[in-house]
Design a protein around this nucleic acid. Structure first.
Lengths: 137, 137
DNA sequence: ATTAACCTTAAAGCCAACTTTAAGGTCAAG
DNA sequence: CTTGACCTTAAAGTTGGCTTTAAGGTTAAT
């Protein structure tokens, strides 16, 4: 199949597929005499794997390192994945904390607005002191 | 205090403070005769509030809308906050799912690499079919 | 033979949230 | 009265992950 068909089947724009190839995330595609790129179902799977890894928070650069087929260092790849899991775990904990803080903040604001119609920096400050750093990603 | 001091106390670069002012997120600072910006502790609190809101996932644009003091529409601000909490909740659920998937993936890979030293696309596919869409943000 | 739908490339543009650069002006210490 | 740390501005650069543009070449149908 040609790039338009692969784009349709994968849901990834043709321009993005070319972009991935240029970045080295995808191998250089075989070409027709006309210069058109040709793909098969393996390429479709590669794209799906990319989207999956992306949904796990991997950057294109990380994927290029891990999925550089031919010479995958399995142990390194595994380490990458485990680190990612750890990061994800930390992120979730942080986000849950934020969520709680935000809930509390909303309640405080509802009360303070019912009374004095101002933002009551005291409650804000209390929350802000508690709240950790970044959300990141 | 001057901008360098505020930068030090807030942990936010002076260039960033100027940038926030230009964006309209901070009010225009009072100036010395020399043209130097002058700040007080309220400005420090404003910056801390910005970092806090940022940690909750608010963009500078959203904050500009919400914290446009003088004429805050409390109901709208509250709606913003509640929507953010909802988004955060959804995000957490998705991330937890990703985390589980990633754990499963790691186990599968450990097994398949012990045996045939290849990535066993079958297990990957199974996971990928299950796994929802975006992480987003 | 023409048209429309496809493909090619390099290069530029986009977004948020900054950071850096260039070319200055101010101020306190020695 | 000079040195160095600080401040000013507008404008350009950065990052990641694309998308868009411009200027073409190919293919299939009519």
């Amino acid at each position: 199949m040609k790039i338009g068909e692969l784009a349709k089947q994968s849901g990834i724009a043709a321009s993005t597929i070319r972009f991935y190839e240029k970045k080295g995330l995808l191998p250089e595609a075989r070409r027709l005499a006309s210069g058109y790129r040709v793909y098969d179902d393996n390429n479709l799977k590669q794209l799906q794997l990319i989207r999956f890894a992306q949904s796990l928070g991997f950057s294109l650069e990380e994927m290029t390192a891990i999925f550089d087929n031919n010479r995958v260092d399995h142990d390194q790849a595994l380490q990458h994945l485990q680190q990612k899991r750890q990061e994800l775990e930390t992120l979730v904990v942080h986000l849950q904390e934020k969520q709680r803080n935000l809930g509390t903040l909303i309640e405080h604001l509802q009360h303070s607005w019912e009374n004095d119609h101002c933002m009551s920096p005291e409650s804000l400050n209390a929350l802000m002191r508690q709240s950790g750093k970044d959300i990141k990603q």
